[in-house]
Amino acid sequence: MKKKWLLISSFLVMILSGCDNPLLIFDTKGPQAKTISDTIIFSIIVMAVVLFVVYVLFTFMLVKYRASKTDDEYEPPYEEGSKWLEITWITIPVIIVVILSVVTVRSTIDVESTPKAYAHEKPLIVYASSSNWKWHFSYPEEGIETVNYVNIPEDRPIEFKLYSYGPITSLWIPQLAGQKYAMSDMVTTIHLVADTPGSYMGKNSNFSGKDFAHMEFEAQVLTAKDYDEWVQDVKDTAPTLTEEEFTHLLEPGVLGRKTYSSTHLQFSPAPEGEHAGHHHGDDMDMHGEQ
């Protein structure tokens, strides 16, 4: 069992020390990812304690009660069980589960809404839709659209509105926030804020067919000034997105980056409100945002 202990302790040290090259989901660049990272580290510590107790007991039993150590005459006693021991190993896990439940509910509320520090700011809404095997990002406010990359301003709340033109996909930018499904018949929402400019890996994490492995995109966080410049530049130079062009984009395949100075939302609206798959009307927003 020594080998396993080494692995586990080195694993913990690697994460907790935050060494030069931390694992992606602990290398956070925004409050939402940070909340989850803290939750995960907390749960790892609690679970490490549980593992420790089990391993100590296990090692003790195996060392002490092996047949080769007892004499031949030894006859193990009959043991019914113990009420107090049973109560102990029910009560302690119940307490652990209660603690973890509180942490879970609170952190889930946090990541499912705009981070408190940014609550006063108006969020930037970006519609992110998937088709085989690419991502389309529409900025209704700015009236621009990109394919397979997304630029967002730092320190401003972002709401990704997700849906799909095909199989269920899952939009995931591990360093900024947890993932969520994009589906054809309803819109889901990811709330996030990025607090450090830089280029981050984004991908579809839900298997969606042949070229699923290539459904990666770059999420670039820009300073507010750079972001405004980029938007202006797109408006000035990029072509408009016609319905014909969009239909062409939806055809299955792998594409490079594209940039347009209009969005597909006018002629192909997202499945929300009256366009939702099941005509739930206004209730539809409830699903995405509790």
Partner: peptide, 21 residues
Amino acid sequence: TIGGVTGVMLAMASADYQYHN
């Protein structure tokens, strides 16, 4: 037990947004 405790970790909805898939 390693499978079990990682199961508890996965059970936490917020954390699962990072583990899922």
